[in-house]
């Protein structure tokens, strides 16, 4: 199990920028080379993901970074979001962020995302993210906000597998739908 720590801090932000090529107008994200066993202080090469699966996975990582930043900041940077999301996910994040702001709650800490193997279905790609929210704290008026619940009102598992659907628009893979696999486990 390999993990991607998403945080506002410098390391994760640097990671997100590296993974997505964020800040430029490239349609394809870039990924750092895997370092050797004798790591140099700074990676030097930035090969571009080659396969559709790699490109889609890189975009999902970028989306999760944008989403997590938006939830913590209770605001949305559309310039970033437009590059990684579309469809229902695009609306859903707006609902989540606005509702956090309206509720007067505050979200801090970091999610840990662990991506599963992308599944190419032709017109779209499915990827399951095992989302660990152990490091996330949400408070309202100084008190913890109750844990996330399912339709039955019971707390959902942590970590929770969430499946994402990515579609290709104008040459770029975008996260379009999500589905919480409430009955599954990571």
């Amino acid at each position: 199990m390999r993990k991607h720590h998403s945080a506002l801090g410098g390391v994760a932000l640097a990671l997100a920028l590296t993974l997505t090529g964020c800040g430029g107008d490239d349609t394809e994200p870039k990924v750092q080379d895997t370092p050797s066993q004798s790591p140099s202080p700074t990676p030097t090469s930035t090969p571009t993901p080659k396969t559709p699966e790699e490109k889609a996975a890189a975009q999902l990582v970028a989306y999760l970074d944008v989403r997590d930043d938006a939830l913590r900041a209770a605001t949305i940077d559309f310039k970033r979001l437009n590059k990684v999301a579309t469809g229902q996910v695009f609306l859903n994040i707006q609902q989540n962020v606005s509702a956090i702001e309206r509720s007067g709650s505050k979200l801090t800490g970091e999610y840990v995302h662990t991506l599963g193997e992308p599944r190419d279905r032709g017109a779209y790609i499915l990827i399951i993210d095992c989302e660990d929210r152990s490091g996330v704290e949400q408070t309202k008026d100084g008190k913890p906000v109750p844990e996330p619940v399912g339709p039955d009102g019971k707390p959902v598992p942590n970590p929770l597998p969430i499946e994402y659907k990515l579609v290709k628009e104008k040459g770029r893979w975008l996260v379009s739908d999500q589905n919480g696999l409430l009955e599954e486990s990571c």
């Binding site: 993990k3 994760a12 895997t34 370092p35 700074t42």
Partner: peptide
């Protein structure tokens, strides 16, 4: 940084 990046890359390339 290199360690975190490496972990993310492996995750990107597909696991579990």
């Amino acid at each position: 940084l290199a360690r975190v990046v490496a972990a993310a890359v492996v995750a990107l390339l597909g696991l579990l």
